[in-house]
């Protein structure tokens, strides 16, 4: 019961607010008072106003352009008195109608232009510099390779790790997936564990080179996915690796 009563009270308040707002609107409508009757001799002023573009995202700007003839006194609501013709850059936070009034000896006239402002800006500002594509990632973060049945980082992998780490540090928002792979020899189950050890070794090496461990996820594919399917040592070497990729 209490909740119900509260709700009705809210509803009444809302209705009252609605009535008050609409009431105000009504008063506003007649506000632009009828201009003085034009003098018989002077030519009536003309005016036009445009905004380019007519739609922007908030934070962006648009150009107002206006011209008038036979006017001595031109003003735009919200901006104030302006030259009889001119341009102005505007950057409103919400949709705005620019109302121009031109007065001259021959009377007065008005013109309007509406600038639509779209909802909150998409998040380009924070993400823009970070948006790393997968191909960029792959070009810059190279895999490392391992010896037979081993998961220790070889000396030739140290420089690769250093380069990988420096690139990753310059893209601090990129998440990293390290997958461990094994060659086709040996047992499927054992190779899953060995691949996990390879991924773990690569993760340790990256974190020691300064990459935050919380950015890194590791998995093992064992010998379930092969980069190279021939049955020789050069192919096996290709498959004994820790592969880095962008973790989505």
């Amino acid at each position: 019961m209490k909740t119900y009563r509260k709700n009705s009270a809210l509803a009444i308040a809302a209705l009252a607010a609605f009535l008050i707002t609409t009431g105000c609107h009504h008063k506003q409508a007649p506000a632009p008072e009828a201009p003085a009757p034009p003098a018989a001799t002077a030519p009536a002023p003309t005016a036009s106003i445009t905004v380019t573009p007519d739609t922007i995202n908030s934070g962006q700007s648009a150009a107002l352009n206006w011209t008038s003839t036979n006017a001595t006194d031109v003003s735009i609501d919200g901006i104030g008195a302006v030259e009889t013709s001119g341009t102005k850059t505007v950057s409103p936070a919400e949709t705005t109608t620019y109302h121009l009034v031109a007065r001259g000896d021959g009377g007065s006239t008005d013109a309007t232009a509406t600038l639509t402002v779209s909802a909150p800006p998409p998040p380009p500002p924070p993400a823009a510099p970070e948006a790393l594509t997968e191909s960029e990632f792959e070009q810059n973060v190279k895999p490392i390779f391992f010896d037979f049945d081993a998961y220790t980082i070889r000396s030739d992998a140290q420089s690769v790790i250093a380069q990988d780490a420096s690139f990753l540090q310059s893209h601090p928002n990129a998440k990293i997936l390290i997958a461990g792979y094994c060659d086709e020899r040996g047992s499927e189950e054992y190779n899953l564990a060995l691949g996990q050890n390879r991924a773990n070794s690569a993760k340790t090496a990256l974190t020691q080179a300064g990459v935050d461990a919380s950015r890194i996820r590791t998995i093992s594919y064992g010998k379930e996915k092969q980069f190279c399917t021939e049955h020789n040592e050069s192919c096996w070497q290709q498959n004994r690796r820790a592969q880095f990729s962008l973790d989505q």
Binding site: S187, A193, N197
Partner: peptide, 9 residues
């Protein structure tokens, strides 16, 4: 188990 290295199967 608690030794470093693969422990599996």
């Amino acid at each position: 188990t608690a030794y470093r290295g693969p422990d599996v199967s």
